[in-house]
């Protein structure tokens, strides 16, 4: 069968493939942010963590020639960023959103500073599993080339969903996120729990960054992130702080992001730039559609500064 024969079927296929490819960083960042926000704090700095994670992963992968060591390094860097955010926010009268914005700029700036020498060299990529080998259509094969991180992300979202209900740690995070007073009455220290939750959130965002530089697009440039870290925050709200919802929303955003390239690939030459904006327009539409002046957000953690 000739590749061109699938014709317009190429569009949904490319969207599916794109959804899987583009969504992975969204999955990790939004799962990380979901953990942080469930503990009652917002980390807007994940955009900076994502970029710094991308740079760290790439640089370490170049130096060690192992993408996995790069991945671990990115997670560690993200952990440090998250802990830094959590540590600053534990001081009284510190606003977590303002600190987040500062860290977003700081993370990106630091990544550009250290990342300059790594723009040229080529790093080894993270492996993908070719689930499309049964087909001889190249588009199908391309679409079903699934990176291991996507699979890990999928499993992780299920585990987190389960853990929020069935583990001590999960319940403690929810207690702290919903009521600091109740947490203190139980002898928990909300600041410590939030510090750890922000740290874990940062580490996941770092992994999301590693995916960007080590798989798709697969190189380190200063423009590697197009706001995924920020959009992931909106996505968590859209997903109502539910890890499974985060996964689904990330797929949706990934699919929307793949719309432009997909249309371009089947020969739409006019106006496809507009479709590149699809994820951002989707963000806006979702935020408007799910907000209401008379109703508070269902499922929002009670201690979150934006919902208080």
């Amino acid at each position: 069968m000739d590749a061109t024969e699938i014709g317009l079927w190429g569009v949904p296929l490319a969207i599916l493939g794109g959804a899987i490819r583009v969504s992975t960083p969204f999955i990790f960042v939004s799962l990380g942010e979901a953990i942080t926000e469930r503990s009652g704090r917002i980390n807007l700095g994940l955009e900076g963590t994502l970029v710094f994670g991308a740079m760290t992963a790439y640089a370490v992968a170049v130096m060690t020639n192992s993408p996995w060591i790069g991945l671990v390094a990115a997670a560690f860097a993200g952990l440090c960023f998250g802990l830094f955010h959590g540590w600053i926010c534990k001081f009284p009268k510190v606003n977590d959103i303002a600190i987040g914005i500062a860290l977003m700029l700081f993370g990106s700036g630091l990544a550009f500073f250290f990342g300059k020498p790594f723009i040229k060299p080529k790093a080894p990529n993270l492996p993908a599993i070719p689930f499309g080998r049964w087909s001889d259509i190249p588009q199908v094969q391309a679409a079903l080339d699934v990176n291991v991180l996507f699979l890990i992300g999928a499993v992780l979202s299920v585990i987190l969903w389960w853990a929020f209900r069935n583990t001590r740690a999960g319940l403690i995070v929810r207690v702290v996120g919903d009521s600091s007073d109740a947490a203190r009455a139980m002898g928990l220290n909300p600041d410590t729990v939030r510090l750890l939750a922000t740290g874990v959130g940062g580490a996941l965002a770092g992994i999301g960054g590693a995916y960007l530089s080590l798989y798709y697009p697969g190189s380190w440039t200063e423009r590697i992130s197009s706001g995924q870290g920020l959009m992931a925050v909106a996505l968590v709200i859209f997903a109502r702080w539910n890890p499974l919802g985060c996964f689904a929303a990330a797929l949706l955003f990934g699919g929307a992001g793949a719309l432009g390239p997909a249309l371009q690939s089947v020969g739409v030459t006019q106006g496809y730039y507009l479709f590149y904006a699809a994820p951002y327009i989707l963000t806006l539409i979702i935020m408007i559609a799910t907000s209401s002046p008379t109703r508070s957000l269902a499922g929002a953690p009670g201690e979150l500064s934006i919902t208080k």
């Binding site: 209900r165 001590r168 319940l171 929810r174 207690v175 009521s179 109740a182 499922g299 009670g302």
Partner: peptide, 20 residues
């Protein structure tokens, strides 16, 4: 001092001294 978004059972269990 109950946590609003948790169920009654979750509130009871998490308040215990030793939670597995």
């Amino acid at each position: 001092t109950l946590v609003p978004s948790l169920t009654g059972a979750e509130n009871l269990v998490i308040a215990r001294e030793k939670v597995p």
